[in-house]
């Protein structure tokens, strides 16, 4: 019998339209969304706003310039762990758009292997659009943005093989990586590529820090879009992150003090 989950017999016949147990999450989500929208659309909060220097993002130009000078390709890959729903993949697409525009301008070959057909399709659109916007649609080669394998180490072997054969001058490892991270980063190191990495996978960050030239840590990857484009509406959401951090820090301090004074209290747990 085929599987049609829409036919699921819903055993829970009762249930409230609003589940009160999710109230703390709901309030936190509304506050967070409110802060993002406020910083984005409130004109005053967008004034006089600059980001600190992020070495990994400043090095993007250097990496593209190097590939152009050496007449060798750029290799960009988003890792095996993500799919298109993941914000990290979208953040990576933003950087890809910028890299593709520069690659188009300098006529530098950009190779993008991926493990996910949807990511491949989106990346093709993003890169194509960048080439068109730069005025070089003829330089775009769809085959350079390719699906290689959905299997983790099939993907790792395919990308490793491309790095070894193409010997790219610069490698961008930006997205969600798992155990393949060190295999790719070390192979890139062996061929002498300049490497810029960034991931939301904390365990793989340590591998990237050891093996790559520049590593974007944590939220730096998400700030990249605004940092590279200078778009104030996107930069404003970075300010929202800082405001939310302040809220979280305040809650942590209150929670720690409260729990220290009255260890039996539970109101701060959710």
């Amino acid at each position: 019998m085929p599987f049609y989950p829409v036919q699921l017999v819903l055993l829970n016949t009762g249930g409230a339209w609003f589940d009160l147990s999710t109230l703390p999450v709901f309030i936190a989500a509304l506050i967070a969304i409110g802060i993002v929208l406020f910083t984005t659309y409130h004109k005053k909060s967008r004034e006089r706003f600059t980001l600190r220097k992020i070495a990994g993002l400043d090095a993007v130009e250097e990496a593209i310039g190097r590939a152009t000078e050496m007449a060798r390709p750029l290799l960009y890959t988003p890792g095996w762990g993500g799919d298109i729903q993941r914000p990290t993949t979208i953040a990576s697409m933003n950087i890809l758009s910028h890299v593709a525009a520069r690659a188009a301008r300098y006529d530098c070959q950009l190779v993008y292997p991926t493990h996910d057909p949807v990511i491949m399709s989106v990346a093709q659109e993003v890169v194509r659009e960048s080439y068109v916007q730069e005025g070089y649609p003829d330089r775009f080669n769809e085959d350079n943005i390719r699906y290689v394998s959905s299997s983790q180490f099939g993907y790792a072997a395919a990308v490793e093989g491309q790095i070894t054969r193409l010997k790219p001058a610069s490698i961008f490892l930006l997205g969600t990586f798992e155990a393949e991270s060190l295999i790719l980063a070390e192979t890139g190191n062996f061929v002498g590529a300049i490497q810029i990495a960034g991931t939301d996978s904390t365990i793989q960050l340590s591998f990237f820090i050891v093996a790559c030239d520049y590593t974007l840590i944590g939220e730096e990857l998400f700030a990249a879009s605004g940092y590279l484009s200078g778009d104030q509406s996107i930069l404003a959401s970075v300010r929202a992150q800082d405001l939310m951090k302040l809220v979280i820090m305040a809650l942590l301090i209150i929670g720690v003090i409260w729990a220290s004074i009255n260890p039996d209290s539970t109101w701060w747990r959710f």
């Binding site: 993002v36 914000p87 840590i217 970075v238 951090k245």
Partner: peptide
């Protein structure tokens, strides 16, 4: 600390999208 930063980055990116 890194996870909180990543979580907030994911959240703002999602809202922007």
């Amino acid at each position: 600390a890194i996870l909180i930063g990543i979580g907030l980055g994911s959240l703002t990116t999602s809202v922007r999208v």
